[in-house]
Amino acid sequence: MDGKLFYLMGPSGSGKDSLIEAAREPLRALNCEVMRRVITRSAESVGEDAIGVTPEEFDRRQRAGAFSLAWQANGLSYGITKEMDEWLRSGRHVLVNGSRANLRQAMELYPTLVPILLTVKDEVLRKRLLKRGRETPEQIDARLARNALFKDRRSSDSPVHQIDNSADLAVAVAALLEWVQLNAGPDRT
C-alpha cells in the first residue's frame, strides 16, 4: 500500500475526538483522511463523526467482510470499513481512532502502521471523565487503573509515539500534524 496508516489510541476521555476534529482539515492538506468508525452505540458518536449501528447490524456487516479492522471494547463493537484499504492503495494516508487493546492485531495486518498514543495526566483525565458524566466514580477509577496497567506493560523502547493532551488542544494538534508530516513521506497528490 502506498499510503501510511496512522493509528491513534488513548484512554477514554483523553481527547481523541477533539483532537481529530481540530486536526481534520490540516490533515487533509497533508493528504491524510480521517476514517469514520462504525460503533454499536449511537450515543458514542456524540462528539465523534461515527456511524452508529445496532449490534445485529454490526455483526451482519462483520460477517459480510465490510471491515478492515474490528474489535470489542467496553461492551461495544467498533469497525473500520474497507474504504480505508482503498484510500491506502490510492496513496492517501489515513488516520483511525483505534484501540490500545487492538494495536497488535492492527500491526499484524498493517506492518507499516504508525502507532500514536494520546496521553493525559491522571488528574486531568479524572476531571474530564467526571464532567462527561457517562460513568460512576467507581467506573472511572477502574478506567484509570486499566490505564495504569497499559502504561506499565509498555516497554521503554516501544515504537509508539506519545502526544500529551493534558493542556491546550492546539499543542496536541501541532504535535499530531508534525508526526504525520514526518512519517508520511513525500506528498503523493
Rank of each mutant, 00 (worst) to 15 (best):
D85Y: 11
Y110M: 14
L76G: 00
L69H: 01
L88E: 00
D59F: 00
P159L: 13
A174D: 14
S77G: 04
D2H: 07
D152L: 11
A172V: 00
R28K: 13
S156R: 12
T40K: 12
A43M: 09
D187N: 14
V53S: 06
I140G: 01
D141K: 08
A29N: 06
E56N: 06
E56A: 15
V120P: 01
E138C: 14
V53R: 02
A64W: 07
G10A: 09
R24W: 06
N147P: 04
D152T: 08
E138R: 14
K151L: 10
R104M: 11
L182C: 11
L8Q: 06
T136P: 03
M1N: 08
L130T: 12
G79W: 00
Q105C: 08
E138D: 15
A175K: 13
D157L: 09
G47R: 10
W71M: 06
R89Y: 05
W87N: 04
G47W: 11
L109K: 14
N74S: 15
L19N: 00
R188F: 07
R132P: 12
T136A: 10
E123W: 10
L5H: 02
N165P: 02
R128G: 13
E57K: 13
R61K: 08
E123H: 14
F58R: 01
S18A: 14
Q162I: 08
L109T: 08
G185F: 12
L27K: 07
R63A: 09
R132G: 09
I140H: 03
V46A: 11
E44D: 09
L130D: 03
E44Y: 14
Q72E: 13
D141C: 11
K151A: 10
G79Y: 03
N165E: 04
S12F: 01
I80D: 03
Q105K: 14
A66W: 01
H93N: 15
D152A: 13
A106L: 12
N31D: 15
G133I: 07
R128K: 13
K131N: 09
Q139S: 05
L129R: 02
P159V: 10
A70E: 01
L169G: 01
T54N: 06
E57Q: 12
F67G: 07
P186M: 09
S156Y: 04
Q181N: 07
V120I: 15
W87D: 06
R63I: 11
A101F: 04
T40C: 13
L118A: 00
N183W: 02
G13V: 11
D49C: 00
L88S: 05
